[in-house]
Design a protein around this nucleic acid. Structure first.
Length: 199
DNA sequence: TTCGGGATCGTCT
DNA sequence: GACGATCCCGAAC
């Protein structure tokens, strides 16, 4: 398998829901970090909308040092750090000045599996990338090194999907504080794919 | 400057 | 199913 094709800048300026469902789900997230190529099929993701969504870090369109990258033009990485130990990778969507992001929650490992096993310290394929913190570890993504970088470069990119997946919509995970937005069906995953964090 | 809590995960019961 | 780990952010003082 070859991951040389990339989604281009204009695609990332689409509406976040369209980008997530029509382009990102089923595509391959790829990294070449420390000389190692790793890649996985995107099987699960969540949409966050800065203007209205109480679960979004940038709600209500609040620009802070942490959320600044979300306000940039689509096509860069928003990577943040939580719980003192985990990084989380998001794709920034939409035009500059809007704060929309797509959290990648789960991958199906495709390439560089040995590297992923070393980084994750486990031989269990099913446990390499099935969670937002896990996949950052497996692909070598950190806030310090990758927040704000372009997804059309050579370190981190997304290779387009070749088939159209069947999609299931579900509530997002871990956002009980988000009041009426916690029940929105803004999490999307590939039907019957075993590499999702939760059903 | 302090302080509360987090878009999680691994370990333990 | 519960809990602790452990850094950073953002709000309040």
């Amino acid at each position: 398998m070859n991951f040389s094709q990339r989604l281009t800048a204009s695609i990332y300026n689409l509406d976040a829901f369209e980008l997530a469902q029509k382009h990102l789900l089923g595509a391959s997230l790829c990294s070449r970090i420390d000389g190692h190529l790793t890649a996985g099929k995107i099987t699960e993701l969540e949409v966050y909308i800065g203007s209205c969504d109480k679960a979004c870090h940038a709600y209500p369109n609040k620009l802070t040092p942490r959320t600044a990258t979300m306000f940039r033009a689509g096509g860069c990485a928003y990577v943040f750090f939580v719980y003192g130990m985990y990084n989380q990778f998001n794709v920034v969507a939409g035009p500059e000045g809007t704060a929309n992001a797509i959290l990648i929650r789960s991958l199906e490992p495709l390439s560089g599996i040995e590297t992923m096993c070393q980084r994750r310290k486990t031989p269990d394929i099913r446990n390499l990338t099935t969670g937002p913190g896990k996949l950052c570890q497996a692909l070598g993504i950190t806030r310090k090194e990758h927040d704000g970088i372009s997804l059309t470069g050579s370190e981190l990119w997304i290779s387009p999907r070749t088939e159209t997946p069947q999609i299931v919509a579900a509530p997002r995970i871990g956002i009980d504080y988000a009041e009426e937005y916690k029940d929105k069906l803004w999490r999307f995953y590939i039907k019957d794919n075993p590499f999702v964090s939760r059903r």
